[in-house]
């Protein structure tokens, strides 16, 4: 039987803004600038409840108070979980499969999503540290971190 839908008229369309320029926020800006300028990952510090947390935002999710301070943290991270990515979001096979990981830091709530590099067989619980781009190439972005590599 003939496919009836093929005979119906269609109307072409699209649906999104042309582009977005996202607001980073005052404290998250400091977070990105410390990656760019110091090659350091810092965490937000809530002086009300004493928690360090990532991602950086200028309020405390846990106790509901304003946060306006970043603190240095141990740059050594731990792989909380990882996976090996073989297909992109459109089902296309990647030329170079890679390891995606959720990385946590000592005494810090939350963590970061990033790639693993220089590793054959990653393990959950493995200790890793960030590998940054050359400082002159850094722009203040999470992509200033190339990947995390095993220690």
């Amino acid at each position: 039987m003939e496919n009836r839908t093929s005979r119906l008229l269609r109307y072409p369309g699209d649906m999104e803004a042309e582009s977005y320029l996202y607001t980073v926020g005052p404290l998250a800006e400091q977070f990105l600038l410390s990656i760019k300028n110091e090659g350091k990952i810092k965490a937000a510090y809530c002086k009300n409840c004493g928690r360090l947390f990532l991602p950086v935002r200028s309020f405390c999710t846990f106790c509901g108070k304003e946060v306006n301070e970043l603190r240095e943290i141990d740059q050594e991270g731990v792989v909380e979980s990882f996976s090996k990515v073989k297909l992109d979001s459109f089902g296309k096979e990647l030329k170079e499969p890679f390891y995606l990981a959720y990385i946590k830091f000592r005494n810090v709530e939350g963590g970061l999503l990033h790639k693993l590099g220089e590793v054959k067989e990653p393990k959950i619980g493995m200790k890793v540290k960030p590998v940054f781009k050359e400082s002159k190439e850094r722009i203040g972005s999470l992509e200033d971190i190339l990947y995390f590599r095993p220690i």
């Binding site: 607001t23 980073v24 926020g25 005052p26 200028s58 106790c63």
Partner: peptide
């Protein structure tokens, strides 16, 4: 334009509202 993120704007309004009620997040 404001320099805060959407979450941070929501937070500021929420915080002021709770303070004016004498209540806290808990």
């Amino acid at each position: 334009r404001l320099k805060e993120t959407p979450q941070e704007l929501a937070f500021e309004a929420s915080r002021v509202a709770l303070d004016s009620a004498g209540l806290d997040v808990k």
